[in-house]
Amino acid sequence: MGVLPAPIEELLNTALVAELTVVDDRGRPVTHPLIPLYDGERIYLTSSVLFSRKLEHIKDNGKVSLSISDPNAVKVERFRRATIQGDAIVDDADLHSGWERVLPIWRQKEPAIDFFLGKRVALPLFFERGVIEIRPRRAFLWADGRTDVAPQVFELVGAGR
Protein backbone atom coordinates (compact mmCIF):
# COMPACT_ATOMS: atom_id res chain seq x y z
CA MET A 1 0.00 0.00 0.00
CA GLY A 2 1.51 3.29 -1.06
CA VAL A 3 0.97 6.89 -0.12
CA LEU A 4 -1.67 7.49 -2.80
CA PRO A 5 -5.22 6.13 -2.92
CA ALA A 6 -5.35 2.71 -4.57
CA PRO A 7 -7.32 3.81 -7.70
CA ILE A 8 -4.69 6.47 -8.40
CA GLU A 9 -1.81 4.10 -7.74
CA GLU A 10 -3.29 1.69 -10.23
CA LEU A 11 -3.41 4.46 -12.82
CA LEU A 12 0.17 5.48 -12.11
CA ASN A 13 1.39 1.91 -12.35
CA THR A 14 -0.09 1.40 -15.80
CA ALA A 15 0.03 4.87 -17.41
CA LEU A 16 2.36 5.08 -20.40
CA VAL A 17 2.11 8.84 -20.42
CA ALA A 18 1.10 11.58 -17.99
CA GLU A 19 1.13 15.34 -18.29
CA LEU A 20 3.62 17.02 -16.00
CA THR A 21 2.94 20.71 -15.44
CA VAL A 22 5.72 22.90 -14.11
CA VAL A 23 5.95 26.64 -13.52
CA ASP A 24 8.22 28.53 -15.91
CA ASP A 25 10.48 31.45 -15.04
CA ARG A 26 7.62 33.92 -15.72
CA GLY A 27 5.24 32.07 -13.42
CA ARG A 28 3.25 30.42 -16.22
CA PRO A 29 2.22 26.76 -16.43
CA VAL A 30 4.07 24.60 -18.96
CA THR A 31 2.99 21.02 -19.55
CA HIS A 32 5.12 18.12 -20.78
CA PRO A 33 3.97 14.59 -21.64
CA LEU A 34 6.25 12.08 -19.85
CA ILE A 35 6.23 8.48 -18.61
CA PRO A 36 5.32 8.44 -14.89
CA LEU A 37 7.09 5.91 -12.67
CA TYR A 38 5.93 5.15 -9.14
CA ASP A 39 7.54 3.22 -6.30
CA GLY A 40 4.72 3.48 -3.76
CA GLU A 41 6.13 6.61 -2.20
CA ARG A 42 7.38 9.02 -4.81
CA ILE A 43 6.58 9.60 -8.44
CA TYR A 44 9.57 9.67 -10.75
CA LEU A 45 9.94 11.08 -14.22
CA THR A 46 13.17 11.30 -16.13
CA SER A 47 14.21 13.93 -18.63
CA SER A 48 17.07 14.00 -21.07
CA VAL A 49 19.33 17.03 -20.97
CA LEU A 50 18.15 17.59 -24.55
CA PHE A 51 14.75 18.58 -23.17
CA SER A 52 15.93 19.98 -19.86
CA ARG A 53 14.03 23.27 -19.66
CA LYS A 54 11.56 21.54 -17.35
CA LEU A 55 14.43 20.54 -15.07
CA GLU A 56 15.55 24.17 -14.89
CA HIS A 57 12.00 25.28 -14.13
CA ILE A 58 11.62 22.71 -11.34
CA LYS A 59 14.94 23.73 -9.82
CA ASP A 60 13.63 27.29 -9.66
CA ASN A 61 10.14 26.33 -8.51
CA GLY A 62 9.41 22.81 -7.29
CA LYS A 63 5.60 23.07 -7.41
CA VAL A 64 4.24 20.65 -9.99
CA SER A 65 1.17 18.70 -10.99
CA LEU A 66 0.84 15.43 -12.83
CA SER A 67 -2.29 14.52 -14.70
CA ILE A 68 -3.21 11.03 -15.89
CA SER A 69 -5.86 11.70 -18.46
CA ASP A 70 -5.41 9.67 -21.63
CA PRO A 71 -7.74 6.67 -21.95
CA ASN A 72 -5.42 5.18 -24.59
CA ALA A 73 -2.42 5.34 -22.30
CA VAL A 74 -3.77 3.52 -19.26
CA LYS A 75 -4.89 -0.06 -18.87
CA VAL A 76 -7.37 -0.20 -16.01
CA GLU A 77 -10.67 -2.03 -15.77
CA ARG A 78 -12.74 1.12 -15.27
CA PHE A 79 -11.26 4.23 -16.79
CA ARG A 80 -10.72 7.10 -14.40
CA ARG A 81 -8.63 10.24 -14.34
CA ALA A 82 -6.39 11.70 -11.67
CA THR A 83 -4.22 14.70 -10.98
CA ILE A 84 -1.53 14.77 -8.33
CA GLN A 85 -0.05 17.99 -7.03
CA GLY A 86 3.26 17.84 -5.32
CA ASP A 87 6.72 19.15 -4.60
CA ALA A 88 9.43 18.09 -6.97
CA ILE A 89 13.17 18.00 -6.81
CA VAL A 90 15.65 17.26 -9.57
CA ASP A 91 18.37 14.69 -9.05
CA ASP A 92 21.05 15.47 -11.61
CA ALA A 93 24.06 14.59 -9.50
CA ASP A 94 24.96 11.85 -11.96
CA LEU A 95 23.35 12.54 -15.32
CA HIS A 96 25.08 9.58 -16.91
CA SER A 97 23.85 6.74 -14.74
CA GLY A 98 21.97 8.19 -11.75
CA TRP A 99 18.65 7.75 -13.56
CA GLU A 100 19.29 4.03 -13.99
CA ARG A 101 17.92 3.50 -10.48
CA VAL A 102 14.42 3.93 -11.97
CA LEU A 103 15.21 1.78 -15.01
CA PRO A 104 13.54 -1.35 -13.54
CA ILE A 105 10.19 0.49 -13.26
CA TRP A 106 10.69 2.21 -16.61
CA ARG A 107 11.44 -1.12 -18.29
CA GLN A 108 8.10 -2.53 -17.14
CA LYS A 109 6.26 0.17 -19.05
CA GLU A 110 8.54 0.58 -22.04
CA PRO A 111 10.49 -2.65 -22.63
CA ALA A 112 12.01 -1.10 -25.77
CA ILE A 113 14.09 1.16 -23.55
CA ASP A 114 16.69 -1.61 -23.25
CA PHE A 115 17.02 -1.70 -27.03
CA PHE A 116 17.58 2.05 -27.12
CA LEU A 117 19.98 1.88 -24.20
CA GLY A 118 21.99 -0.63 -26.24
CA LYS A 119 22.31 2.08 -28.90
CA ARG A 120 23.63 4.59 -26.40
CA VAL A 121 26.58 5.35 -28.66
CA ALA A 122 24.12 6.68 -31.25
CA LEU A 123 22.10 8.77 -28.78
CA PRO A 124 24.61 9.80 -26.12
CA LEU A 125 22.85 12.97 -25.00
CA PHE A 126 19.45 11.29 -24.79
CA PHE A 127 20.81 9.06 -22.05
CA GLU A 128 22.25 11.89 -19.99
CA ARG A 129 19.18 12.32 -17.83
CA GLY A 130 17.94 13.99 -14.69
CA VAL A 131 15.38 12.40 -12.40
CA ILE A 132 12.36 14.40 -11.25
CA GLU A 133 11.13 13.12 -7.89
CA ILE A 134 7.65 14.22 -6.88
CA ARG A 135 6.45 14.06 -3.31
CA PRO A 136 2.64 14.06 -3.56
CA ARG A 137 0.76 16.58 -1.43
CA ARG A 138 -2.76 16.46 -2.83
CA ALA A 139 -4.57 14.19 -5.29
CA PHE A 140 -7.76 14.54 -7.30
CA LEU A 141 -9.69 11.57 -8.61
CA TRP A 142 -12.43 11.60 -11.24
CA ALA A 143 -13.77 8.13 -10.61
CA ASP A 144 -15.26 7.56 -14.06
CA GLY A 145 -13.05 10.00 -15.93
CA ARG A 146 -15.77 12.66 -16.23
CA THR A 147 -14.48 16.05 -15.18
CA ASP A 148 -17.89 17.72 -15.38
CA VAL A 149 -18.36 16.09 -12.01
CA ALA A 150 -16.35 17.44 -9.07
CA PRO A 151 -13.35 15.27 -8.17
CA GLN A 152 -12.66 13.46 -4.93
CA VAL A 153 -9.85 15.32 -3.20
CA PHE A 154 -7.20 13.58 -1.07
CA GLU A 155 -4.95 15.66 1.16
CA LEU A 156 -1.62 13.87 1.38
CA VAL A 157 0.49 16.34 3.33
CA GLY A 158 3.01 14.24 5.19
CA ALA A 159 2.83 11.48 2.60
CA GLY A 160 6.01 10.20 1.08
CA ARG A 161 8.24 11.86 3.67
Binding site: T21, T31, K63, S67, P71
Partner: peptide
Amino acid sequence: HAVIAFLDHEGYPMSVA
Protein backbone atom coordinates in the same frame (compact mmCIF):
# COMPACT_ATOMS: atom_id res chain seq x y z
CA HIS B 1 -9.13 15.17 -25.04
CA ALA B 2 -7.53 18.37 -23.80
CA VAL B 3 -5.74 19.04 -20.53
CA ILE B 4 -6.11 22.51 -19.04
CA ALA B 5 -3.22 23.49 -16.78
CA PHE B 6 -3.21 26.54 -14.55
CA LEU B 7 -1.82 27.76 -11.26
CA ASP B 8 -4.06 27.46 -8.20
CA HIS B 9 -4.29 30.00 -5.41
CA GLU B 10 -1.32 28.40 -3.62
CA GLY B 11 0.85 28.66 -6.70
CA TYR B 12 0.74 24.93 -7.48
CA PRO B 13 -0.03 23.88 -11.01
CA MET B 14 -3.37 22.13 -11.41
CA SER B 15 -4.25 20.16 -14.50
CA VAL B 16 -7.59 18.75 -15.54
CA ALA B 17 -8.74 16.87 -18.62
